[in-house]
């Protein structure tokens, strides 16, 4: 017998169940328990009356900066302002969804491709955002390369206000409704990369971005 059979048999014996592997009835019971998707208790601030204020508060805490624009057309101007304010070069790698905006008009070189190691800024959208923790959620897909949010020193993320949810559980419900199975990577980003591994001193920019800037539409 292989390791799998031995391990399963040992578990069953130790827990007083007969046989070498789970029965159909046991498997059905497990699937039934899973299908209930029971939601546990959530902290009161997860359902804040002002969802946007809660999101802003948590972004502030994790080090994500926040700007609001009226429509998608205004994104390039806000990106230009942000890059200038931080002394960053006016060039970025971005998701194809934003390729059609007037980047030249804002004086920015937009590269419609996944970010490479030497790109300084990456521009992404997101699947949704979560107010409880100040998080943006990215789903990997051909149109949404994860590396664009990971390799550059600056990550700019565009969030539509109607995609702002209260909790992580809400994001799972939306995922099941709109996508079904989770894609290969479900990526929750809450602020820039950090470490505290030397003397428990927090340093921003360990391996991922030094800066995360969210533009709310």
């Amino acid at each position: 017998m292989g390791a799998r059979e031995n391990i399963l048999a040992r578990i069953r014996k130790a827990q007083g169940r007969a046989g070498a592997a789970p029965t159909e009835a046991e498997m059905a019971a497990v699937r039934e328990a899973i299908a209930r998707h029971e939601v546990g208790p959530q902290p009161p601030f997860a359902h804040a009356p002002d969802r946007l204020a809660q999101f802003a508060k948590e972004c502030d805490r994790t080090g994500t900066t926040l700007a609001t624009v009226a429509s998608e057309r205004d994104v390039p101007a806000e990106v230009a302002r942000y890059l200038a304010a931080n002394g960053l070069e006016r060039s970025l790698a971005g998701w194809g969804a934003f390729a059609g905006l007037d980047w030249a008009g804002a004086g920015i070189a937009f590269h419609n491709r996944p970010a490479a190691a030497d790109d300084r800024t990456g521009l992404t959208g997101c699947f949704c955002a979560i107010a409880e923790t100040g998080t943006v959620l990215l789903l990997s897909s051909p149109a949404a390369p994860k590396v664009t949010a990971l390799l550059p020193e600056t990550h700019v993320c565009v969030v539509r206000k109607e995609r702002l949810l209260d909790t992580m559980e809400d994001s799972f419900a939306l995922l099941r409704r709109e996508v079904g199975d989770p894609p290969r990577a479900v990526f929750y980003v809450s602020g820039p990369s950090r470490t505290a591994d030397i003397e428990q001193t927090i340093v921003i920019g360990a391996h991922g971005p030094y800066r995360v800037h969210v533009i709310l539409i």
Binding site: P114, S140, P142, P145, P183, R184, A185, F187, V189
Partner: peptide
């Protein structure tokens, strides 16, 4: 929350660039 939480399910899907 930690800065990154990542759920990884299976391999690269058709068309994925990473």
């Amino acid at each position: 929350i930690t800065n990154y939480l990542t759920l990884t399910t299976g391999v690269k899907m058709p068309g994925d660039t990473d």
